[in-house]
Write a protein that binds this DNA or RNA. Structure first.
Lengths: 213, 213
DNA sequence: GTAAAATTTTAGATTAATCTAAATTATGAA
DNA sequence: TTCATAATTTAGATTAATCTAAAATTTTAC
C-alpha cells in the first residue's frame, strides 16, 4: 500500500467511522463531519476511487484496501493515545488532537515497536479496542447506553468519542471507566436518562450525551 | 509564534543548517540541499520573508523568529531521536527519517513532557547537543576531525549528520561514540586521514567522510 | 572595465485541496 | 405520477508548493 497524504487518510478514517451496517455513507455526512463543502467531498470521492480506496465510483463504500487503511490508522491513533497516557502521563481528555497528528507518521518499524514497548495493549485510554496488525477488532459484548435496560447493572467500559469537550464534561460529573451503573429512569420523549453510579450517586444525561457511550 | 506548514519548517531548518559564520546562505545552496529547483526556493524565500522568518527581502538571513523556530525544530528532532533509541530500542542509524516526521507534530504540552520523561537529555544518540526550551545550545569544546592535530589524543563525541547511509558506514568500520582516537597520518593532497582507534585499530577515512565528524 | 559564467528572479504552468455558485440528479410526499 | 426539496456534481476560482524556460542580475576572470 503506497503512502497517502494526511488529507486522504483523514477522509478514509471519516468514511470508515460514518459507515452504516451496509458499509455505506453519504457525501453530505462526510462534508458535515469534516466541516468541508459537499463539492470538495464529491471531488475527493472521485480521487479516492481512482486510488482504489473506494469500491464504487459513486457509492461511498470503502474497498478492502480502504478498509484496511482506516483500521491501521485507528490502530496507530489508539496506540499513540495509550502511549501518551501511560508513558507521558497525559489525561484522557488531552490526547485526541496529538494522536490525530501522530497517526499520520509513516514508519512500519515504529508501528511495530510501539505496541511491543506498551506490551500489546488491547484497549486505549477511552476503553476503545485497538485493532491488531491485520486490522481485526475483538468482538465486544458491550452495548451503548441508549440501549441499556432499566434497573439492569452494567459496567462502564468505553466512550464512543475521544473529543476533549465531551471528556471534560464526564470528568466534571465524576465519571470513569470501570464504574458500575444502572439506568433508573428513561424519558421516552427526549431520550434523557437518569443513572445510578456505583450505587451511591445519581447523574442525569441528555440524549446527546447518552449517545456518546 | 503561529503554526507553519511542514514545508516552511523544513526550509527554515535547512537555511539554519547551511548558514555560515555571518548567518547567511544562498538560494542555490538551499535548492541543492532540498533537491528543489532554485526558482522554487527563490519563491519560497519571498514568502518566508513575508512571514517574518527572514531578516531581509533578498538576503538569506534568518530573523530572530526564524532562528528560534529552527532551534525548536532541532530540539524536537533530537528529543524524538533520543526517545526512539532509548525507549523503543532503535539503532542510531534508524531514527533520522522518523524524527524528521515527528519533529513537525505540534503540541506544546508534548514538547514539554517528552524531555521530562527522558530526564532532560543534553545530547542525542549521535552526540549532538539538544537545544534547551529557549533554543540555547551548550558551548562544546569539540573540534571537527578535519582540524585534529596529528598524534594528539581525542574522544569521539559526535557525528555531524544523522543520515543512515553515513552511520551504516561507521557501523561497518566499528566506530562508536566514546572511543579514544588519534590522527596518525594526514594526507594534504586529498584530505584523507589515518586514525588509530582505542590504541589498537587503524582506520582510513576519505575527506568526505572526515567532514562528517 | 568589460565579457563570460554563475546566480537569482520572473513568468507561466501544474497538482492537491479547497471554495462558491450553478446545474443536475435523486428522493419522497401528496 | 409529478413536483418540490434535498443531495450531488460540475464549472470555475483560489492558495500552497512545485516545475521549466527565459530574463535579469551579480560575480568572476582576464
Amino acid at each position: 500500500m503506497k503512502n497517502e497524504s494526511s488529507t486522504v487518510e483523514n477522509y478514509i478514517k471519516t468514511i470508515y467511522s460514518l459507515c452504516d451496517k451496509n458499509g455505506k455513507t453519504t457525501v453530505s455526512a462526510v462534508a458535515e463531519r469534516l466541516q468541508n463543502n459537499p463539492a470538495s467531498v464529491s471531488n475527493m470521492v472521485r480521487r479516492l476511487h481512482e486510488k482504489g480506496l473506494l469500491e464504487n465510483k459513486s457509492k461511498l463504500i470503502l474497498s478492502k484496501e480502504g478498509n484496511l487503511l482506516a483500521r491501521q490508522l485507528i490502530r496507530k491513533h489508539r496506540l499513540w493515545e495509550t502511549f501518551l497516557v501511560r508513558v507521558l502521563n497525559f489525561k484522557w481528555e488531552e490526547v485526541h488532537d496529538i494522536a490525530e497528528q501522530l497517526e499520520h507518521v509513516h514508519s512500519p518499524l515504529l508501528t511495530e515497536r510501539l505496541p511491543v514497548f506498551l506490551e500489546y495493549p488491547k484497549f486505549d485510554p477511552h476503553g476503545d479496542p485497538i485493532p491488531d496488525k491485520k486490522g481485526n477488532l475483538p468482538d465486544l459484548n458491550a452495548i451503548p447506553l441508549t440501549e441499556a435496560e432499566v434497573d439492569q447493572l452494567y459496567i462502564f467500559r468505553s466512550v464512543a468519542t475521544d473529543k476533549s469537550d465531551f471528556l471534560n464534561y464526564l470528568n466534571k460529573k465524576g465519571l470513569q471507566l470501570g464504574q458500575k451503573w444502572k439506568v433508573t429512569e428513561k424519558e421516552e420523549f427526549d431520550g434523557s436518562v437518569k443513572l445510578l453510579i456505583d450505587e451511591n450517586r445519581e447523574v442525569y444525561f441528555s440524549e446527546t450525551v447518552a449517545q456518546n457511550f
